[in-house]
Design a binder for these strands. Structure first.
Length: 488
RNA sequence: GGCCCGUUGGUCAAGAGGUUAAGACGACGCCCUUUCACGGCGUAAUCAUGGGUUCAAUUCCCGUACGGGUCACCA
């Protein structure tokens, strides 16, 4: 299974500015982008703002911002221009009108003067009667030309509807699902141009995809059932139908789509929760798509390399935060020291403000232990100041330590550490371990008390030696002295 | 309800008539270890269901069940 690449591949991501970036939408954007890049084509961004009522201020900027952060750079779009602009549908109003009138000319569409009230009543009655087909009753479909003219002249509000065939079937092709046929009598005479002069999504989409030379339409599979109507429009105009790739939804559980109510449906939510952007992309690409090999950790560029249409799934995938977290951890671990420093530093600063620490050593200790960046602040808060703790913390059964042995160990350690010349992990390690050997004690006998004295915690990023290196000589010595006092 | 689509371990999934039915996450156990991790090793766990077709069906066909989508002057 593969897509047709005989023409230059052009794909588009066409979100509506109705709020934040939903994770499902983002995934569609990712697949759309990947396909364009994979085949050396163009990735176009188009804003579908034909619903004036649902428009949300700032939503367009949010779309730009999210796509940019994710590295899904578009070749043509509202802000970067392109040969096929404008790329905002509300600015293309006249274009749609022109094409709609062309269809009316051709007898493939017609004016409808039914009022909203009439339509509402009609649907209510149909629902009441539990009719299996609840379409528009085609009341205006065969109005005499003079009548239409008269109503138009009088300025009667109208919409333009698509005239569906009443018999036969329409078949469309989807790259994943193959051929799908639908009985024409089931198709509604859908509205093409609304009373406010704006096109409906169903119409604008077809016009724009054609005019913008889109060759591959990637979209959510909620459009699967309306695809036949689009095909009929392409046919009416005599245009070539693009290739469709409908992708399944991301679910919260077996029966619900991921929704904003869960508080984890938006891209921004995940960033706030400490997910690293490339890991978010990696994970959601894996929902509904499977790579050929066994590796599943990919950067966006690697996804472009690896991607293959045949790996796309036809059934919905349930979102698993645990798996996403694991992928996140793996991405963090694979980062170079410098890269990890860059992403971790803001989070480290949320937990501690001291400048007198060795951030490099801290980052190295943190990197293998961090699944989510948001865990960092609580892991480093003791660096500012040792929290209140009980001497019971010195008790460790496995290490066979308690408050008394701890006091002895710290008293042995203090002069040793004071004698360390170059203050770094290696030197501290050498000094401490030679003392351990000299005293003939277990590692933990010395190291457990050291960690506790330096952190006041049982779990820390790195052991006592790393902590000493992170804190620096002065702070280390002073914390040990404080601990000795506390134990005495 | 009509129409369309789907159904492999708890989750993501590979598989394309003959396989010991991959792998990952998670769970559990062991090893390593100065904590927690990382890492390493291992265990348990899957073809919704009933009929066909076939020497042979998880794989092909039909039905059933279940799930999803859709039936707007929303996209």
């Amino acid at each position: 299974m593969d897509i047709n690449t005989s023409k230059r591949v052009r794909t588009r991501f066409a979100p509506s500015p109705t709020g934040y970036m939903h994770i499902g939408n983002l995934r569609t954007a990712i697949f759309t982008y990947i396909i364009a890049r994979k085949y050396g084509g163009d990735f176009i961004l188009r804003i579908e703002d034909t619903d004036l009522e649902r428009y949300v201020e700032g939503a367009v900027d949010k779309i730009y911002e999210t796509l940019r952060i994710c590295g899904l750079n578009w070749d043509e779009g509202p802000d970067v221009g392109g040969e096929y602009g404008p790329y905002i549908q509300s600015e293309r109003k006249d274009i749609y009108k022109k094409y709609a009138l062309e269809l009316v000319e051709k007898g493939k569409a017609y004016y409808c003067f039914c009022t909203k009230e009439r339509i509402d009543a009609l649907h209510a009655a149909q629902r009441e009667a539990k009719l299996s087909i609840q379409n528009y009753d085609r009341h205006c479909r065969d109005l005499p030309a003079e009548e239409v003219k008269r109503l138009l002249d009088e300025g009667t509000p109208y919409v333009i509807r698509q005239k569906m065939p009443t018999e036969g079937t329409t078949t469309f092709h989807d790259v994943l699902y193959g051929d799908i046929s639908v009985e024409n009598e089931l198709l509604d005479d859908q509205i093409l141009i609304k009373a406010d002069g704006m096109p409906t999504y169903n119409f604008a989409n077809v016009i724009d995809d054609h005019l913008m030379g889109i060759t591959h339409v990637v979209r959510g599979n909620e459009y699967l059932s309306s695809a036949p109507k689009y095909n009929l429009l392409y046919e009416a105009f005599g245009w070539e139908v693009p290739e469709y790739i409908h992708v399944e939804h991301i679910m919260r559980d077996a029966q619900h789509k991921l929704s904003k109510r869960d508080g984890d449906a938006y891209f921004g939510d995940f960033v706030e929760k400490g997910f690293y952007v490339p890991a978010i992309i990696n994970y959601i690409a894996l929902l509904g798509w499977a790579p050929k090999g066994e590796n599943e950790i990919f950067t966006l560029d690697e996804l472009v390399q690896e991607f293959d249409i045949s790996g796309l799934s036809k059934s919905p995938a349930i979102f698993d935060i645990q798996k996403m977290t694991a992928i996140n951890a793996e991405h963090l671990r694979r980062l170079s020291h410098e890269e990890f420093m860059a992403v971790a530093l803001p989070w480290i600063r949320k937990g501690c403000n001291t400048d007198n620490i060795d951030v490099d050593v801290l980052a190295d200790a943190l990197q293998p232990r961090t699944e989510l960046l948001s865990e960092i602040p609580e892991k480093v808060d003791f660096l500012d100041k040792v929290p209140e703790y009980s001497n019971d913390l010195y008790i460790n059964k496995k290490m066979k330590t308690n408050a008394e042995t701890a006091l002895a160990a710290l008293n042995m350690l203090l002069p040793v550490l004071e004698g360390v010349v170059e203050w770094n992990t290696g030197a501290i390690h050498t000094a401490v371990f030679s003392e351990i050997e000299k005293q003939g004690v277990k590692n933990g006998y010395m190291l457990w008390p050291l960690r506790t004295a330096l952190s006041g915690k049982a779990m820390t990023p790195g052991g006592g030696i790393e902590l000493a290196a992170i804190l620096g000589r002065d702070e280390t010595i002073s914390r040990i002295k404080a601990a000795i006092e506390k134990l005495s």
